[in-house]
Nucleic acid binder design. Sequence first.
DNA 1: ACTGAAATCGCTAAAAC
DNA 2: GTTTTAGCGATTTCAGT
Lengths: 157, 157
Amino acid sequence: MKLDRIDQKILTVLQEDGRIANADLADQVGLSPSACLRRMRALEEAGIIDKYVALLDQRKLGRKMDIFVEISLVGQSNEVLENFERAVGRSSEIMECFLMAGDADYILRVTAADPTDFERIHREHLARLPGVLRMKSSFAIRPIVRKTAFPMKTETT
Amino acid sequence: MKLDRIDQKILTVLQEDGRIANADLADQVGLSPSACLRRMRALEEAGIIDKYVALLDQRKLGRKMDIFVEISLVGQSNEVLENFERAVGRSSEIMECFLMAGDADYILRVTAADPTDFERIHREHLARLPGVLRMKSSFAIRPIVRKTAFPMKTETT
DNA sequence: ACTGAAATCGCTAAAAC
DNA sequence: GTTTTAGCGATTTCAGT
């Protein structure tokens, strides 16, 4: 799918405000409401727009800690990796997980209310992940930037 | 602010579908539409709900790479840290950044279309960050989990 | 084929209870 | 917290470029 300037503008706006009224979005991108809505639907159909979500304030929910966990597995066989990844997918507490090149096999990010809560998560979730050889947790002191919006090529800083 | 079961249910649903019609949301949480809307507004007012956004498909946008960058600064003075953090905030390419305890001072995550694109980002964004002593980039091979929704206490797996 | 204009339909939001 | 209602926005159809 090809994205022209207007599509990019639509995506930029929707990444900031996913509930903007179609009429207002049309204004901002300089299109009539119906043309704007058609493009938006096309972007949804194409899967460029994956979903619309509410983002919650982590601190106000009492989740004051972010922890990165580097993990090495006992082996590199498909079975070991797949078991591990399935378990990761089932855990509600694991916010992000990437298979990595380099030192660690996986890196994951979890959030916790406080050290006690992290202990619970460690016990109930992390320690139960299968095939783990070594685990190294690193605590974040403070989040500096937390973005969900990708830059569009026309507005790269 | 105190969150009862219904508030938590509202947040759970909105974290999955931020554009759900109020009438449908009311159905799902077992409330009348107006009562549901009042609670939703209250959650927005309180800042529990930070914002509503569209999440785009990173791969379909052509951003196939995720890179984690560990950074050590030349010093720990307020000035060095603040300069660095301001610069991070200005870069559109840096998706996440945390001040860390432990080995590295900061960890950040950037996304790139391909190695050439990463070279550009490295040159135009990362290499220009002030006060950097050492930088270590780790490439992700594949994302396993990528979540924006926090688990509510009533549904912890 | 894609855009803009007009009409219908359904939802939101504010009232009264 | 619920029901009711008025008004507005979304959505679809149609004509034009």
